[in-house]
Design a binder for these strands. Sequence first.
DNA 1: TTTATTATTGCGACTTAATCGCAATAATAA
DNA 2: TTATTATTGCGATTAAGTCGCAATAATAAA
Lengths: 130, 130
Amino acid sequence: MKRRNTQAQAAVLQVLKSSDRALSHEQLQAELGTKVDRATIYRVLNRFCEDGLVHKAMDDDGKQYFAYCAGCDKPNNKHSHNHFHFKCRQCGKVECLQHKMHIPLPAGYVVTDFNGMISGYCNRCAPGEA
Amino acid sequence: MKRRNTQAQAAVLQVLKSSDRALSHEQLQAELGTKVDRATIYRVLNRFCEDGLVHKAMDDDGKQYFAYCAGCDKPNNKHSHNHFHFKCRQCGKVECLQHKMHIPLPAGYVVTDFNGMISGYCNRCAPGEA
DNA sequence: TTTATTATTGCGACTTAATCGCAATAATAA
DNA sequence: TTATTATTGCGATTAAGTCGCAATAATAAA
Ligand SMILES: [Mn+2]
Ligand SMILES: [Mn+2]
Ligand SMILES: [Zn+2]
Ligand SMILES: [Zn+2]
């Protein structure tokens, strides 16, 4: 299956690239308007994930967020998403955290994917920040 | 709202306590049979989570798994779930990993929840383990 | 013990997020 | 140009979890 350069993909990628945070399908749809179909957005995002162009993060509620791969680790030239994401319970922002993780696994275990999400309040929304 | 001791809760808790892994709603229902209703299981689990008796972990597919709180951290006597979970793509097992995490956050950020899930292959299922 | 209070349950309907089938469209190759 | 097929649009469908509400049962009060 060779990939083609399409309008829909370009549009989705452009939105992701110019965002400083991870976006939900909902948010992407809002940006794209009627230009791209709902199901298409999902399919495009999944393809981007397969290709390692974008990564996905699940929140506590089982909703997925997508971010363009910018600061991702590449140990021996293999793309890896070993960083956490932070979701603010107040403003809803989801952002990639810088810190790279390494989790010690039991012997014989093999990692294929990593999903880390921390929920809480960002600096703007933190309570007691009168 | 004061809690009551009910059949349903006792049954669910017993299954969770006697399991060495985190269980999905589906798996719990299978264990419990017709003894406890579907919606009740969900409600019981949510109550257990609120009470800090049990913790929840999301997998890549947005499906939740529940584990009885055994080896959880308690910094200054406050329950905290700062450990990862491992889900085997082959056998489906979800287990709590021992290692406790501490993620450095930007200044002013406040954590309320933590969800970490690693996917891959367990020692039994790892490919190339002929 | 009996009665009252209300947390909890069972059941079906509902919501939300995401996927799927399939015919139509449009990138790319021939 | 024409052919090939990856991709799209659209509606239907799935899957996981929640909700409303009347019935039930755990606890407290009498
Ligand atoms: Mn990445
Ligand atoms: Mn715990
Ligand atoms: Zn915020
Ligand atoms: Zn396994």
